[in-house]
Computed example of a mutant assay.
Amino acid sequence: MYTTVTELADGRELIYYDAAPGRDRTAEDRRPLDRVESSPELRRDPATGDWVTIAAHRQTRTYHPPADACPLCPSRDGRQSEIPAADYEVAVFENRFPSLSGAAGRCEVVCFTPEHGAGFADLTPARARLVLDAWTDRTAALSARPGVAQVYCFENRGAEIGVTLPHPHGQIYAFTAPAPRTAKHLAAAAAHRAATGRNLFEDLLAEARAATERVVLAGEHWTAFVPYAARWPYEVHLYPHRRVPDLTRLDEAERAEFPGLYLELLRRFDGLFGLAEPTPYISAWHQAPLTGGEELALHLELFTVRRTADKLKYLAGTESGMDAFMNDVAPETAAARLREVP
């Protein structure tokens, strides 16, 4: 992997990731941009203890632009975008409309490919590996920033999820406190250790691998399975067999196997409902916080809001109002359906 670090016209950082050296990354951003003015505020909900980000400046962010005005495509034919180069492999830059910035954290955009109409599932294994390397590099860099407590890499895909830019991309958030879901993981892991003397996430993986009816894909170093108490109709967790806290601790064998297995998993999601359009999903890397996360395990959680070809799973009264999930599909049924997808 080869990196080129440069700046956009407003001073935001841009990093090109290339599989080989020699690519010309000298193109300048000549847009007349003002410096980004954002002042998100972190407020703690005294009733739950959760931190809520107030980011009112994001109301003016780019919203469903036409394809010929996509800000994530390369700059071509006199049209300037967020990527000054005429082509790229993987690019990462600071979000112009960040939910977190300054003392509140940092938000970055990860462009997986210059092809506007593609998706992650369309990548080659080599390009998917380059994305993995970019996630890893940014995890290391952001973890070294003062005040950062946890790094979160994720992809939102599909209008049903709320995506406003259809170009294939993901995001990376640097939180200044562990996320609420991570706090639940920490509490559950501590209780499991106290009760059994074992690690919760190692036991979850071992249980899933033994209960093969919930396994979707398995390799030498990774297993993808539907969790026993899945919240979403089609939800898969992907674990490395060796417990590590974050992406930086994966070894070469684990990195080498990941792209092919993950791409197959995404393609099975796309084939679930027999539709022409791709399946909407959220793909989320859960990494341990920088301190106090010794019991946690790196894993990826992938799920879709679609429950049938013509029905979505809405987070309505029980889920949104009480954080009480109701799932319409049995986990064992979901796993069997995913195994059946060619």
Results as ranks from 00 to 15, higher is better:
Asp87Tyr: 03
Asp87Met: 04
Asn156Leu: 02
Arg44Asn: 11
Pro331Tyr: 01
Trp232Asn: 08
Ser101Phe: 08
Leu263Val: 01
Phe269Met: 09
Glu7Ser: 15
Ser39Thr: 15
Thr176Trp: 01
Arg127Asn: 00
Val341Phe: 03
Pro21Ala: 14
Val329Ile: 14
Ala190Ser: 11
Tyr88Pro: 00
Leu72Trp: 06
Val341Gln: 08
Ile15Glu: 02
Arg255Ile: 05
His116Glu: 08
Ala86Asn: 13
Gly293Thr: 07
Thr124Trp: 04
Ala206Thr: 13
Glu220Lys: 09
Gly274Glu: 12
Gly49Glu: 10
Met326Arg: 13
Leu142Val: 13
Tyr17Pro: 00
Lys311Glu: 15
His221Ser: 13
Val151Ile: 13
Pro40Met: 07
Ala188Gly: 12
Leu200Lys: 09
Thr196Arg: 04
Asp270Met: 00
Gly197Val: 03
Ala67Gln: 14
Phe273Met: 03
Pro342Phe: 09
His299Asp: 03
Arg267Ser: 03
Ala191Cys: 02
Pro40Glu: 14
Ala9Phe: 06
Glu41Cys: 05
Pro146Cys: 10
Arg198Ser: 12
Arg43Cys: 03
Gly274Ala: 01
Glu295Ala: 13
Val151Gly: 05
Glu155Phe: 04
Arg138Lys: 10
Glu340Gly: 14
Thr62Cys: 13
Arg157Ser: 13
Val163Arg: 03
Asn95Leu: 06
Gly260Tyr: 11
Arg106Thr: 08
Ile83His: 00
Leu205Gly: 03
Ala190Lys: 12
Trp222Leu: 03
Ala183Gln: 14
Thr318His: 12
Val215Thr: 10
Arg157Pro: 02
Gly274Asp: 08
Ala174Gly: 14
Phe273Cys: 06
Tyr239Ser: 07
Val163Trp: 03
Glu82Trp: 06
Leu8Lys: 09
Ala183His: 06
Ala134Gln: 00
His237Gln: 15
Leu263Lys: 00
Leu298Cys: 11
Thr136Ile: 05
Ala189Cys: 04
Trp135Gln: 02
Ala183Arg: 14
Val148Glu: 09
Ile54Gly: 12
Thr53Gln: 13
Ala335Thr: 09
Thr4His: 13
His64Asn: 13
Leu142Gly: 01
Pro74Arg: 07
Thr3Lys: 12
Trp135Ala: 04
Leu272His: 05
Gln287Leu: 04
Gly321Gln: 11
Pro233Val: 04
Gln80Cys: 11
Arg23Thr: 12
Gln80Ser: 15
Arg193Lys: 13
Asn199Met: 12
Ala141Arg: 15
Ser143Asn: 10
Cys107Pro: 03
Ala9Trp: 02
Arg106Glu: 15
Arg209Trp: 02
Val216Phe: 01
Pro168Trp: 00
Leu247Ile: 07
Asp122Leu: 00
Ala211Trp: 06
Arg76Gly: 07
Leu250Lys: 06
Thr6Pro: 04
Val341Tyr: 05
Arg129Asp: 14
Ala159Asp: 14
Ala187Glu: 15
Leu205Cys: 08
Val131Asn: 00
Pro46Tyr: 10
Ala316Asn: 10
Arg138Asp: 02
Thr333Phe: 06
Asn95Ala: 08
Tyr314Asn: 06
Ala194Met: 03
Cys107Tyr: 07
Glu82Ala: 07
Glu277Met: 10
Tyr262Ala: 11
Gln171Lys: 08
Glu295Val: 07
Thr6Val: 10
Cys73Arg: 07
Glu94Pro: 01
Leu250His: 04
Glu301Ala: 10
Ala103Cys: 04
Ala103Lys: 11
Ala218Glu: 15
Tyr152Asp: 12
Cys107Gly: 04
His192Gly: 09
Ala104Asp: 10
